[in-house]
Amino acid sequence: MAHAWRKEAASMTCHVVLFPGLGVQRRSMGPVSSAATRRWWPRLTRSLASTTRTASWPARSSPSPRSTWSAPWRSKHTERAPPPDIAMGHSLGEYNALQAAGAFDFADGLALVQARARATARVPGVMLAVVGLPQHQVREALDAIGTPEVQIANFNTARQLVLSGPSRDIDRVRPAMHLAGARLTRLLKISGPFHSTHMAPAGQRFMPAAQSARVQAPSVPVIANLTARPHRAADLRSSLVRHLTNPVLWRQSVEWLWREHGGLAAHTGRHPAMPGPLHLTELGGGQVLTRMIDRLRSEHLAGIA
């Protein structure tokens, strides 16, 4: 049975809003929608009083991605922009997507992110991006050097993966990836082995906050990193906990989007790839996820698995 929210005709445009995650913060990202951010800045700084030293605007460093990208989304709504058909967030950006879709409000989402940060702060480890190797070669290289502690944390594209694990093991893995043919490896600006089983203790610490959170069914589908399918309201709290210990299925999520909403053609917010039924809007002032989807499309059309 078709979902009620699914587009009835393939020719209709499906508006997808994308929310990036950690690791892409930079100065001056807030002014993407400075007026909206100013309206929410007092509430944000009150909530973060224990960790925020300055509350002036503009701050010397930008606010968190969660707060910065929520503000322009609310600004779009106050300007009566059309709502999205689907929301997608990468890693921590999934919280933005859920809040934008009304699964929880700004204050409750902020409390969840704070609880998540406290729960994960004590888990040592790092994350390593590996570009140019397919999944099977990455696994073969990991098996060859005997590093079971290193796990695939993000399936971004067919040949862009992210690994999580203890620092000492990632240090061993990095040269092995280059020997196997990786074009590039890069440590992410993230202090923790997210989306791996190393976060299991953090998940236990985070569980009380997630289970007590006020959540409701999103008003539009939010594709879950955990399943590459829309979130189910009944599973939302448990999914937030499992999100810490399971990989981000970004590639699989985009492929689901293509199957459900018109194939590979995509029309992005800044640079149209091909006229088609998908219109992508990426918040935060960057194009990280848009470029990732463009790469996925190129890989698919080239038969790269």
Rank of each mutant, 00 (worst) to 15 (best):
A4H: 15
A4Q: 12
A4R: 11
R6Q: 12
K7R: 13
A10V: 14
V17F: 13
V17Y: 07
L18Q: 01
G21K: 02
G23T: 06
M29K: 06
P31D: 04
V32F: 14
S33I: 10
A36G: 07
W40C: 08
W40H: 13
R46T: 02
A49D: 13
T52Y: 14
T52D: 13
R53S: 12
T54F: 15
S56R: 13
S56F: 10
P58L: 00
A59K: 00
S62G: 12
P63V: 14
P63L: 14
S64G: 12
W69R: 09
A71Q: 00
P72R: 03
W73D: 09
R74C: 08
H77R: 15
T78K: 11
P82D: 02
P82C: 07
I86E: 00
I86A: 05
A87R: 06
M88D: 05
E94G: 12
N96V: 15
A97Y: 04
G102A: 06
D105W: 04
A107D: 09
L110Y: 11
A111G: 00
A111H: 08
L112P: 08
L112V: 11
V113P: 04
V113T: 11
A115Q: 08
R116Q: 05
R116N: 07
R116A: 09
A117P: 00
A119C: 08
T120C: 14
G125P: 03
V126A: 07
L128N: 02
L128E: 01
A129I: 00
V131Q: 01
V131P: 02
V131H: 03
R139V: 11
A141P: 04
D143F: 05
D143H: 07
A144L: 05
G146W: 06
G146M: 05
T147P: 02
T147H: 05
P148I: 13
P148T: 13
V150M: 06
F155A: 13
F155H: 15
T157Q: 05
S164A: 13
G165W: 01
P166E: 05
A176R: 09
H178K: 12
T185R: 01
R186T: 02
K189G: 10
K189M: 02
I190S: 04
I190F: 06
F194T: 08
F194P: 14
H195K: 08
H198T: 01
A200E: 09
P201W: 10
G203S: 07
R205E: 13
A209I: 08
A209D: 01
A210E: 03
A213L: 13
Q216E: 14
S219N: 15
V220Q: 04
V220F: 10
P221N: 03
V222S: 02
V222M: 08
A224R: 13
A224V: 01
N225Y: 12
P230V: 01
R232Q: 14
A233T: 12
R237A: 10
R237W: 04
S239P: 12
L240A: 05
L240E: 01
R242L: 14
R242Y: 10
L244V: 07
N246Q: 15
V248T: 01
W256L: 10
L257C: 13
E260P: 00
G262K: 05
A265M: 09
A266Y: 12
H267M: 07
H267V: 11
T268I: 06
P272K: 05
A273N: 07
P275L: 10
H279N: 03
L280G: 00
G286M: 06
M292H: 06
R297M: 03
S298R: 10
I304V: 15
